[in-house]
Design a protein around this nucleic acid. Structure first.
Lengths: 216, 216
DNA sequence: GTCTATACAAAGATAGAC
DNA sequence: GTCTATCTTTGTATAGAC
């Protein structure tokens, strides 16, 4: 059974139902329903009728078309809304514990934070990966958001530590890429196959990464 | 325009046509066509009629159904054939240059080989990622093939070098995971967004990985 | 803005001639 | 084993009442 995932404004008296409370505008309920269905069935595999049903509209009525001109337009809207949400919630700044003090602790905290971020991003990554051909420019935008900017920020932070002599000096950009991709690849693998490779865990991965970066 | 990608048995007199030569059995032509179309349009986005056309059968005739019971059965067959092919072509053993001699050179060669392998595997990874829900057991099989076994083999090789004192001693499994995921993540990112992050290339990534593993 | 009803097209699958 | 023809279902989208 599927429950509306986002917190909704109104009473919880209908929270056990599949449909969102009436107080949520229809357009938003359609976006929620589509987000869920596209993730589970893909774009081509989801019908407008299913979306209507899940949004609390009459299945097979064209009521959907009072809110979106076509299914394609809906997909764009779904992805755009989600990217906006991510951008709004984004937390770039490291916590206070990460600023001064032990480099090893700061790195471990940063890596752990990155893994958690990836977990929150996973549904969007999955949808965009699957439907990238329908999405045009949004894909570049997301690449910028997920990879380029991430490697950039991490690279600068690492360069700072190198300059301060806290870690061995290397190609900061390539090191940032190794770290970023190791974390991303690990996360994707776990999400995709359901479990990490035998003998590897969040902790052992992070510890080893910290050892490598600090040159221990 | 799309040309049949696989080398075919017969004359090349028709190599400029989209359809495969007649000497290739219809079942194989259907598998080729479906492999191509599923990759470009996804499973739900591809119609039996398109597959028939691309396989040189009459579009809209049900001739397809003389060879497969349903579109679902075809998807399984396509993936299974591809996994078999990968398994058959697999090259586990390192080349002679990688055996003795400089550890740094051996590692660099191995990492480069892995990136090339990933490039060959990319279409299959893409298809399975997209259609994993239709594929059941094949996904686990592929995870075993792509991740577990890879981390395993690399872990043992690294452990060997650690024992020989050629590289610093660490958690061999976690180190193997870092290397595997860094390479995989880098490859996925390039394949997905079309270009590596600014300032990072195959060479700088591999060099940095070698430095990290050897403790330079 | 939502409903009932339905037009219209596309898609999966089958029948039977050749 | 492929074809023409067609059945049936499903899906996108529209019309018009309320």
């Amino acid at each position: 059974m599927h429950i509306a995932r986002r917190s909704l404004t109104s009473s919880c008296s209908v929270s056990f139902l599949r449909i969102a409370p009436v107080s949520v505008p229809t357009r938003a309920r359609i976006l929620d329903a589509a987000w869920d269905l596209f993730l589970r069935q893909g774009f081509a595999g989801t019908t407008v009728t299913q979306i209507e049903a899940a949004a609390g509209l009459s299945a097979g009525s064209g009521s959907f078309y009072r809110h979106f001109r076509s299914k394609e337009e809906l997909l764009q809207a779904v992805v755009d809304r989600e990217v906006d949400r991510i951008n709004a919630e984004r937390q770039i700044n490291p916590g206070p514990e990460e600023i001064g003090g032990d480099v090893r602790i700061a790195l471990a905290l940063e890596f752990e934070r990155r893994l958690n971020n990836l977990r929150r991003l996973h549904p969007l990554m999955k949808l965009v990966a699957r439907e990238r051909d329908h999405l045009g420019a949004s894909v570049d935008h997301l690449g910028e958001l997920l990879v380029t900017r991430n490697v950039d920020i991490r690279s600068q932070r690492l360069a700072g530590w190198m300059a301060a002599g806290a870690i061995p000096t290397r190609d900061a950009e390539a090191l940032a890429a190794v770290v970023t991709f190791a974390l991303t690849g690990y996360h994707l693998s776990v999400g995709f196959f359901g479990h990490p490779p035998a003998g590897v865990s969040d902790e052992s991965l992070i510890t080893t990464l910290v050892d490598l970066v600090t040159g221990v």
